[in-house]
Design a protein around this nucleic acid. Structure first.
Lengths: 194, 194, 194, 194
DNA sequence: GATGAATGAGTTTTCATTCAT
DNA sequence: AATGAATGAAAACTCATTCAT
């Protein structure tokens, strides 16, 4: 749970935007420094190298994921409502920071280094485990259908969520993600509740 | 429907493998030429620049997609069987050429150029339209439930397909994609058939 | 005969160690400050720039050389004993501070600046003149053979001394310099005394 | 016994000159390329990195040393003449290529990497072993005095040789190395022959 | 005395591409 | 169809130094 300084947060933020705009190829120290308005060497006062910036991005995502999931888990609501909350909180976050959408589901960006890809895998598992646990409870309480394994239901839910976000991004954010997402969720609900 | 020479096909193939291994950062003329065993300038005999290689990759994917979809559309089978065929033919292809799995769903790779991202968008739409059409037919014939829009069903199906492939890749191809994919498809079937 | 503050002496000391470890390339303000445990700008409170640190090192060597030579010259002993004292006092100093051995005979380190290389030349001359004077006395008193010019004898003595120190250093100080040096000196004595 | 291309030999040559002029700090890819008159990246066609250039320099020295020593060993001459040949051939080489003198005895230059320092150590040992063997023969044949160990005599000879070369270099090559060297050798001869 | 933040100039190295052969 | 040699541009990173606090 690393604590970042203001400048570090700024660098992470700008980096996410750069990746979102043109892929990792766009994430250069020059581009970061230009975006912030400081010199290139100044970046190295705040992160000892580029890898550390990428790890910073992932750490930021992980903290985000953790606190969102913890918040939702703390609510006293039904399983389906819980899943809905996860769905909707993602859409809210992406609408607020569209750049995040381009990076958080792009495992490819982080695949060229073990430490990075492991971290990505961990974040993915965090989501999946949380969703699986919720589904399991829903299945036990009779809220959610039990004729399909919870792992598969969680795959279907997450996959759908990811794809609509990807489409939203590829369409240059041309539709209302929160609205379309809500519609989509209603359809998923129809499929999984008893 | 560009026709590629043997060498061009070789370059495209090797390029897909390189991207699969380490992201686009790994796709350099040097790496391509080293993998093939020819000199760097030799690459330029076959593609006039790097962009053309990337376009070549996408053209290859598009041709693949088209012929697969055409083949499946030509069969006289039910809508559900058709969807299943699309699912399974993907899993077969990825199992045969795992590198493809890392590239075909990675829109981020091609996002830094308009011609590339448009091409990516087109391939995605090709799939989606085909699936939508099939679902529509299935809904009309009473095979598939009609209380959910075909666009949404197609999103759910494609999203799930994509995510299991991504997981397979991130796990370093550590499970049997064809088997797990078949299981998953059975679950999806339960959800969408009447 | 500059007087150094404690901090300045510390910086000079640490600098010698750094050069000893990895050549001048290792002597950076960052490395100095890290070794001491203060910030980089803090170094500039004590030396106005890097050149001044290098001059400080040489000044330190010069003071050392001078006082050693003066001390030895003050003794009322024979010429041969005097030469032996110079030899042995070097070995003692290097054994106590091995890092010095790597720097004091490395004229190359200081060659890229006139002020530095002149200073180096001067220190070398200090040694040589002292040795020459002693040899001359020894030759006049009949202690040392006179069929070889004092300049050449001094070259032979100093060259041998330097080389054994270099070998000691290149062997990572793996033998007892004082012992081996004493043996070597006995052999030299055989060569030069009548 | 690596074979170098013309360009590689040129790079090695220029590198030795640069180091001679201003120490390793002067040996930058920029300076090399500027001296030769090609671009910086062009250097990398001929050496894959800077380390390889340094290894190239040492390989050059090693080959030189080996062939010189082999040549001298092949002559049917007395031990003393042999030593003299080694002495004189060094002085000839340095007079022809003064830059070499600044690099070949500067172990410090190569100390920041294991592979380099090991290679330096090896070259030094090559010389020393050759001289030791010659001295041993001379002692057996009664040519050279036997009351001093051959290792020590070799140290004295090599140390003296090195120091006069260093002085020649520090004096900006201001005296005739071959002449002064010859005088010095005559004095050494007086010391070691019976 | 000391530090956090910053910078201009420079380091090694890689990249896509060109050209003469 | 292929290669050896080369290059301009740019990459990540380091260095000595400055300045406000």
């Amino acid at each position: 749970m690393t604590d970042f300084t203001d400048r570090q947060r700024e660098i992470i933020d700008v980096s996410i935007q750069l990746i979102s705009k043109g892929g990792i190829q766009e994430l250069t120290i020059k581009n970061i420094s230009k975006s912030i308005g400081i010199s290139e060497p100044a970046i190295y006062r705040h992160f000892s190298n580029k890898m550390d910036i990428l790890l910073g991005i992932l750490s930021h995502f992980k903290n985000n994921t953790k606190s969102t999931l913890e918040r939702i888990t703390s609510y006293e609501i039904s399983a389906v409502k819980r899943l809905e909350s996860i769905f909707f909180s993602h859409f809210q976050q992406f609408t607020a920071k569209p750049a995040m959408a381009a990076v958080i589901f792009s495992e490819e960006i982080f695949q060229n280094d073990k430490r990075l890809s492991e971290e990505v895998f961990l974040i993915m598992k965090l989501h999946q485990d949380a969703i699986s646990v919720i589904i399991e409870k829903g299945q036990k309480s009779g809220e959610i259908r039990s004729d399909i394994f919870k792992e598969q239901l969680s795959l279907i839910i997450m996959g759908t969520l990811r794809l609509i976000v990807t489409k939203w991004r590829l369409s240059s954010f041309s539709f209302d993600l929160e609205k379309e997402g809500a519609n989509l969720w209603n359809s998923i609900k129809k499929l999984i509740v008893l």
